[in-house]
Every structure is written in C-alpha cells, then in structure tokens.
Design a protein around this nucleic acid. Structure first.
Length: 199
DNA sequence: CAGCAGATTGACT
DNA sequence: GTCAATCTGCTGC
C-alpha cells in the first residue's frame, strides 16, 4: 500500500517530529521519464530558530525565498559548487523550517541510479550523503521550489521503525553555527548500511 | 563589483 | 588523514 504524503503532513509545526517520521518513508522521483525511489534512512532538521539554517532568524534573501512557502515543496540548492542538496520545506509560509534528506536505501530504478552515479555495481554508498542522494535520484537546481507530487514526491508504504531503532545525533558540517551545532537534530536508522558515514 | 565561505565528496599522500 | 574541486549568493567596499 503506497500513499503519497498529504500536504498536512508537512505543514505541521514540529520540524524535528517530521524529520523523525520521514524515516521509513519512500522518496520517489520521476525525472526525464525515469522512475527511481528509495527508503529514507537519514534526515536532518533545520529551523529558522537556529543558526545552522540559511533562513536563521527569518532572514530573507533570494536564496531563502523558497523557505517562505507552505510546507510540502522542495528546496534544492548547490553546495561547494559541486553538489545538490535536497530538502523538504515544512511548517506554514511564515516559518522557515526544512528537513534535509541525507541518505536513502534504493528500491526502484537501481540501474539508473548506478548510471547517474557513474558506478558499475551497487554499494551501500550509492545514496549515502545528501549530495549522493540528489545525484542518484537525478535531482538538480531546476527542481527547486516545486510542489511535492509530480516530479518528486514522498510515499508512505507502511514501513516504520521503532523508537529504539532511531538514533539522534548532532549534525555534521555545521560547526559555524556555534552552540546550535550541538543540537541532536540528525536522525538515522540504527544498523542501516545505507546511511552516510557517522563522524 | 570583487572577495569569500559553504548543510560535501572522492581522490590522493 | 588531508585537500582540491567549483559555483552561487551574500557581504562589504
């Protein structure tokens, strides 16, 4: 049984709750006629209340405009000039919260993921890490600010993890955020070989 | 308008 | 373990 998550899933106010609930959901893309999908096994929460977010303190710049929409749309941006990172905007249009998808376990379209990644056999690194996820699923800047539903969407296939299987830890790569860098807003599935390397 | 730093990755010493 | 790759958008002059 596969159901697309409804808008009301994303517009709730507790971004860390949404980040946790997204574990086990299935991220699907249909880009250039190629269907690929995978179970979300690692996420991070970002809120305008803390400095690690681009939209900290409600800051508005051309790049963060996407945050100020209702939940349920995509936020894709380029980092280090090389990698795309895929986020889901949550909360309502006055609050700039988002969940970063960091790792998936491939389901459909594995061959195409390998092709996009330039790999010839399936390894646990195929979509471990936010840049890798985007590359494997074919997500790029043109998918920024889209409603989740047509090219990119998330399904509930009744996969759930127990609380004891979900590990919360500090986020990586956000040291510049000072004290906020210590918030345990990174969530991953315990013992999953598909998550990115823990630091 | 120039300079800089970044929610990363993968190749190399 | 260390470091370069490479582009966008923000900050400051």
């Amino acid at each position: 049984m596969a159901t697309k998550l409804s808008k009301s899933f994303y517009t709730r106010s507790d971004v860390t709750l949404i980040a946790r609930e997204l574990l086990g959901k299935v991220l699907c893309t249909n880009i250039e006629g190629i269907l690929t999908s995978g179970i979300i096994v690692e996420t991070e929460a970002y809120s305008q209340r803390e400095r690690a977010s681009h939209a900290y303190g409600g800051k508005r710049t051309p790049r963060t405009e996407t945050f100020y929409n209702d939940g349920g749309i995509s936020y894709v941006y380029m980092c280090y000039g090389i990698h795309y990172l895929f986020n889901v905007i949550t909360n309502w249009h006055h609050t700039a919260d988002a969940v970063l998808i960091r790792a998936i376990e491939p389901l459909e379209g594995k061959e195409d993921m390998l092709l996009r990644r330039g790999m010839n056999k399936m390894t646990h690194r195929i979509a471990a890490g936010p840049g890798s996820v985007c590359k494997a699923l074919g997500i790029d800047r043109s998918h920024n600010g889209l409603d989740l539903g047509k090219d990119i969407w998330i399904e509930d296939r009744s996969i759930t993890y127990k609380k004891s299987q979900i590990i919360a830890s500090p986020r990586v790569g956000v040291d510049y955020a000072g004290e906020d860098a210590k918030l345990p807003w990174r969530y991953r599935v315990k013992d999953s070989p598909w998550v990115s390397k823990a630091k």
